[in-house]
Structure formats: C-alpha cells, structure tokens
C-alpha cells in the first residue's frame, strides 16, 4: 500500500464515527461602513503605528513625491508595468539610476542586492490592519524586487483601500503569488518586543494617491 493510500485509509478509519461537518456561522463583519476620508485616516494611522512613512497626496503630485523619496537613492528598480505617469517628474524622465524588471527580463538576485530602492503599485489595502497586498500584477512585478532592495516605495490608490480584511480578500485572486505587507520587516523574537528592520526592506514609504 502506498503512503498516500495508507494515510487516507488511516484517516477514514479514524473517522468511523462519521462526524458531521457543521454549518459555518459567518456572523463576523463582512464590510466596514467607513467613507473614503475615514478609510484614508485609519490606514495612515495604522501604517504609522508600524513605523512606515506615509504621505497622502493628489494624483498629480505623485511623481514629485516619488522623486523626493528617491533623492538619496543611488539606484532604484521599477516593474515594467509601473504607471508611466508616476515617473514623469522632470528628474525622473531619463534617470540613469533607474533599472527595469519583469518576468521576461528579470534582474539577477545579485543585481537586485546592489539596488537601493524599489517603486511599485499595489493591488489592495486594508485600513483596519495597515496591510498592503501585492499580487504580482505588472505594476507590482516579481516578488523578489520588493524584497531585496532595502527601501520600498509603494503607491496605494484611494480606490484600492478597503476597511477590513474580508473586503480586501474578496477583491483579489488567491492563486496569484501574493505578498501581504504590514509595515517594514520586523521581529518580536527578543523578549517579545517588536523591533523594525530585519531581512525585508527596512524602510517602507507609502504614498496614498487620491
């Protein structure tokens, strides 16, 4: 008997009393009642609590804000699908510091390790938990680019902000390669006190664009 058959047989035998699968009570909240302003306020509060830096700007100001945040970066990477409009800041248009990455033309891990920052979009955000979800769409790119560089600049559109987790999960395709990010890399491993900055990007800048 193969291990597969045997394990399944053991489990069937263990369930010989035929327990009935209960109905799942889903009386927990499925949606929040917050308007856009309240959502932005809550998301900002939660991101700051996790030591992310946040700025809320009008769409037109996004390029300038990105340029400002990249002022000290010797190099940065963007996914090829990043909204071109976001890089129209004068200093960004023909920026020699910029590298592009895509699944078709990926940078090596060593190359990424030499790059200071990364700029991406995002799929959806959860205000209540301060969570940003990346789903590998062309404006967010491969998972490696938001992991290896030490500074992540992430743009969240106000229309992508949800109140609570169930709302966000219902907007995304679970079979894409997903990364849920809540603040910069952190650990609670020493005396259960949270300390920011371990292996992932130690600096997380969130630009909320409205």
């Amino acid at each position: 008997m193969s291990a597969r058959e045997e394990i399944l047989e053991r489990i069937r035998t263990a369930l010989k009393d035929s327990p009935v699968a209960p109905e799942i009570p889903r009386e927990y909240r499925a949606a929040s009642q917050l308007d856009e302003e309240a959502l932005i306020e809550l998301l900002v509060d939660r991101l700051i609590d996790y030591k992310a830096q946040v700025s809320v700007v009008d769409n037109a100001e996004v390029p300038a804000r990105i340029a400002e945040l990249l002022a000290d970066a010797g190099s940065y990477v963007v996914p090829t699908g990043l909204d071109a409009g976001w890089l129209t800041g004068l200093e960004l248009e023909h920026d020699s510091r910029r590298r592009q990455d895509s699944a078709a033309a990926p940078l090596s891990v060593a190359e990424l390790d030499g790059i200071d920052a990364v700029v991406t979009g995002s799929a959806v955000a959860v205000a209540e938990t301060g969570t940003i979800i990346l789903d590998g769409s062309p404006n967010q790119g491969r998972r490696a680019i938001t992991l290896v560089p030490d500074h992540h600049i992430c743009i969240v559109k106000t229309t992508d902000i949800t109140g609570i987790l169930p709302e966000a999960m219902r907007r995304i395709d679970g079979t894409r390669p997903l990364t849920m990010i809540s603040g910069p890399s952190a650990t609670s491993d020493i005396e259960l006190e949270r300390v920011e900055g371990v292996h992932g990007p130690r600096k997380l800048d969130v630009i909320i664009a409205r």
């Binding site: 699944a103 959860v126 491969r142 490696a144 894409r176 390669p177 997903l178 849920m180 809540s182 890399s185």
Partner: peptide, 24 residues
C-alpha cells in the same frame, strides 16, 4: 496574528499556488 504576536497583522504573509512562471 492577533493571537500570536499581538499585532493587528504580521509584517509579511506569503501565498503561493504551485509554480508561477518567472516568479519564485
């Protein structure tokens, strides 16, 4: 996350479904 580290959400959660070409 709330029960384990007492955080509203843990910093990172990764989800993968088999193999994604060109990523991971």
């Amino acid at each position: 996350p709330r029960s384990s580290t007492g955080e509203r959400m843990n910093p990172y959660t990764s989800l993968w479904t088999g193999v994604t070409e060109g990523d991971g």
